[in-house]
């Protein structure tokens, strides 16, 4: 297990390095001079040269990359082109917003899809199962932002459970902040819930056909004890991997959902940085999101290994 963990963590570091290189290279080959952009109309050849020197643009590519990389390790993402402040100060506060929103969505996905997946598998072919087949298919097809609009309409405008656009900052009122994020989290989570319910149900039904399930029946197990003692642990494993991928997707769809609910998170900063060509900010946010996603996928791998003795005990994947 220790060896396996080490391997996974090494992979994590390598992947992040590769991502950082790709991102840095992509934004370095761009035409256009950041120094010129920053100086604007005041640019004279001398000032431009001085600014280039000051911004480190005259260094060779690998040196700039190295500086940027080392900076990131100390949470220094450089300076924003558009605002005269460091990127860290600009976006540092916002990470927590996206973290909370994604975590809420993850909790919703687990809390909704695991019980419902089990239930529909138990009553497969029943009325509830049939209803959920239709509901799942429908929810999988609704884009999260449209769902966000619907939720705003129903809960915000009709039932007035929250004020659309009335984001509450966590410094002011933490409970209110979390409360405001519930609807966006639901909008992100529902399509994923639908997928997870379907996947878990399919896995349970598939495991129930396997030989070991028959063995368990031959020992006098009832269907219920069969499900909880034998099948669930096996059926949940592919679901864990899937939930890892789902979290990545939810972080991405969070960018869009922020706009629906007027949340000043990373997504909004990313969009405004893209429109003002504020590349240090864009790069920092892309790296943060990518890091979040890669870390989550490593964590899911480790959880998987912990649940599956075939990986835990021998340390290799099948």
């Amino acid at each position: 297990m220790a060896k396996y963990m080490l391997k996974k963590i090494l992979m994590l570091v390598l992947t992040l390095l590769a991502v950082s290189f790709v991102v840095f290279a992509a934004f370095s080959i761009l035409p256009g001079d950041p120094a010129l952009q920053k100086l604007g109309t005041e640019a004279t050849p001398e000032k431009l040269e001085a600014m280039r020197e000051q911004m480190g643009l005259n260094d060779p590519f690998m040196v700039r990359y190295g500086k940027w990389l080392l900076g990131m390790l100390t949470f220094d993402f450089g300076k924003s082109y558009s605002y005269s402040m460091s990127v860290t100060d600009l976006i540092g506060d916002k990470i927590f917003i996206n973290f909370t929103m994604s975590s809420l969505a993850l909790v919703i996905v687990c809390a909704v899809s695991i019980p419902l997946g089990i239930y529909t598998a138990k009553r497969v072919g029943g009325v509830v199962d049939k209803i959920f087949i239709v509901i799942n298919q429908l929810f999988m097809s609704v884009p999260p932002f449209l769902l966000g609009l619907l939720l705003t309409f129903v809960f915000g405008l009709t039932f007035r459970l929250f004020t659309p656009g009335g984001y509450i900052d966590y410094h002011d009122n933490f409970i209110g902040f979390v409360g405001y994020l519930i609807c966006p989290a639901i909008a992100i989570a529902l399509p994923k819930c639908a997928m997870c319910i379907r996947l878990l149900k399919a896995n349970i039904l598939e495991e129930a056909k396997k030989d070991y399930a028959r063995t368990a029946y031959s020992r006098g197990n009832s269907t219920t004890s069969m499900l909880y003692r034998h099948i669930l642990q096996n059926a949940i494993m592919p679901t864990i991997t899937f939930i890892g991928m789902v979290v990545a997707d939810m972080i991405a769809s969070g960018i869009i959902i922020e706009q629906v609910f007027g949340i000043p998170g990373l997504g909004r900063s990313l969009l405004s940085a893209i429109s003002t060509r504020d590349y240090p900010v864009v790069m920092a946010i892309v790296m943060l999101i990518a890091a979040g996603i890669v870390i989550i996928s490593t964590v899911t791998d480790l959880i998987y290994a912990w649940v599956d003795p075939r990986v835990r005990v021998t340390g290799d994947e099948e």
Partner: peptide, 21 residues
């Protein structure tokens, strides 16, 4: 009766045991 008075063993010992227990 199952498992107490009547017990059964199967063809495939590879797949008849639960892999995670």
């Amino acid at each position: 009766l199952q498992g107490k008075d009547i017990a059964m063993i199967f063809q495939e010992p590879m797949t008849c045991l639960n892999p995670v227990k």
